[in-house]
Amino acid sequence: MNLPPFEAVLRDNALDVRRYLVAGVGPQEADDCFQDVMLSALNAYPALRDATNLRGWLFTIAYRKTIDVHRRGARRRVLVAAAAAEPEVPVAHPSPPDDELWVAVRELPPKQRAAVLHRFLHDLPYREIAAIIGCSEAAARQNVRAGLAALREVYQR
């Protein structure tokens, strides 16, 4: 297997992965998540068997890492809520204001979120979106449709 130097993979995809992460987990989490994605990718890289879709491979890793971030965020929110119930403990700092649309994107279920982002941020065909989020092409299409419908509701409020 002749893999290109990882530097080339970075050069071709770093900006897109970063955009995807800022959109998907927010600016505060994106930098750490970027490191997490790229280190996982670099670690696994020499064992990769198929170099035909390196971009899709990176986005699959990014998809899993964004799910981890959201899971941790949900756990933290539970803790913050519990802490807020105690009058002695100060309430955690509120996040800085963020664009309403991207907040809504981050609130989508993981598959809808990833499908919408890849469809519009990266113009990926449904076939590739399906491979990244692990579903059929029809389901990828349906996830984009459902995601857009949910966003439209927030957006037209």
Partner: peptide, 21 residues
């Protein structure tokens, strides 16, 4: 909505710093 999704979120800071880290 689609146009704003395509435009992507606002991004602060250069990707170069992330790559150095």
């Amino acid at each position: 909505l689609e146009a704003e999704l395509r435009a992507g979120p606002t991004i602060d800071g250069a990707v170069g710093d992330l790559l150095e880290t």
